[in-house]
């Protein structure tokens, strides 16, 4: 039924447009002008519209920058995250300057030089000096951004923290996460999907002595604040991507390989909950949830999947708790080791 209605609407729309076009053509035919020739009036109108569009576009962009400034992620909750945010701000400032320089010029020129029968265009084919300038200036700016970006990347990826990092395996499967702590020896036991059996859902090798003190958790993972941690990622079935947006951390989990990411959480969950920005965001979200009769939301760090992995890709999450060293030690003591669980 609705199909029929839609088709009917489409047909009617076509007929209406057709009739309007016919009327338009006939009326201009009476006036004796070619209705598709671009007239000076058209140029004036379209030039003006270009100018108006520019104002509307830049205006709504500026509006969005204010209106949407609280929907974005809160400040970084990791050591390298602050560097990334700073690099972000500087790169963003650079491109915004370029944006606000070039777009107005483009649309203003469109308006200013709208065609008039009385005028002739200037014959300018090139200008080597000018072209050199606008090749060299972007090159210099980009050289700066490249150097800055690469040094940040280098710090994140290559520099070893002074303290020995806590080793945690993040294990991805359709559609959930597990974390495996390396235990008191801080060494992960060997694991392979071929060992998966019964409660040994991560395929840990039970003949590897390093594996015995490993701790496997499912619903939430805890991390001590200000201690470097290295995540080693594995995937069981397809590629997943471990995305921890609050820490500015992301790494794919690839079946058949182990990938890794080192970072240091710097803000505990409790501290983040009292952050002004976060409090306001939570309040706003809870207003919305309240209106729909849903459970209230409390801020938590979260690990989500950011690589298409199947039907429930949209709901593959794990809660991440950052807490003091003492709280963390208490929590980890309560968890069963691999040896205890098998």
């Amino acid at each position: 039924m609705s199909t029929l209605l839609i088709l009917l609407v489409l047909v009617l729309a076509a007929v209406v447009i057709g009739q309007i076009v016919r009327i338009f053509e006939l009326s201009t035919a009476i006036k004796g002008v070619d209705e598709n020739e671009i007239t000076e009036r058209d140029n004036d109108w379209q030039g003006l519209l270009m100018l108006l569009f520019m104002i509307g576009m830049l205006g709504s962009f500026i509006w969005m920058m204010f209106a949407y400034q609280d929907v974005v992620l809160p400040k970084a909750a990791s050591a390298h995250g602050s560097d990334v945010d700073q690099l972000w701000d500087i790169s963003m400032a650079t491109i915004l300057v370029m944006f606000f320089l070039t777009q107005p010029i483009l649309f203003y020129f469109s308006y200013k030089y709208r065609g008039k029968a009385s005028r002739k265009a200037d014959f300018v084919s090139h200008n080597d000096k000018l072209e050199l300038v606008w090749t060299v200036i972007p090159a210099i700016v980009l050289a700066g951004l490249i150097l800055y970006g690469l040094s940040t990347w280098h710090q994140i990826m290559f520099e070893d923290p002074e303290e020995e990092p806590l080793v945690v395996e993040i294990y991805a499967k359709q559609f959930g996460w597990n974390a495996r702590y390396a235990g008191s020896d801080n060494l992960l036991g060997y694991a392979n999907v071929r060992n998966i059996a019964g409660v040994n859902i991560l395929g840990v090798d039970d003949t590897d002595p390093n594996a015995m003190d490993d701790i496997v958790v499912g619903t939430e993972m805890h991390l001590p604040v200000n201690r470097p941690v290295v995540f080693r990622f594995r995937a069981q079935d397809v590629i997943h991507s471990a995305y921890l947006p609050h820490f500015r951390v992301q790494m794919n989990c690839v079946p058949g390989a182990v990938t890794q990411f080192k970072f240091t959480p710097t803000v505990t969950t409790a501290e983040m909950r009292t952050d002004d920005f976060v409090e306001q965001k939570v309040a706003r979200v809870n207003d919305i949830r309240d209106g729909k009769g849903e459970e209230p939301y409390e801020f938590d760090y979260v690990l989500l999947c950011n690589k298409i992995c199947g039907a429930a890709h949209y709901n593959m999450q794990m809660k991440v708790v950052v807490e003091t060293e003492e709280e963390f030690n208490n929590w980890i003591k309560e968890q069963k080791t691999f040896a205890e669980s098998i």
């Binding site: 030039g47 070039t102 483009l106 469109s110 030089y113 709208r114 065609g115 265009a121 606008w134 090749t135």
Partner: peptide, 18 residues
Amino acid sequence: AVKAFNYITTLWKGNLRF
């Protein structure tokens, strides 16, 4: 960037027909 600047400069002092 060179391409973008060149397009903009092509408009400059043109007699644009929309």
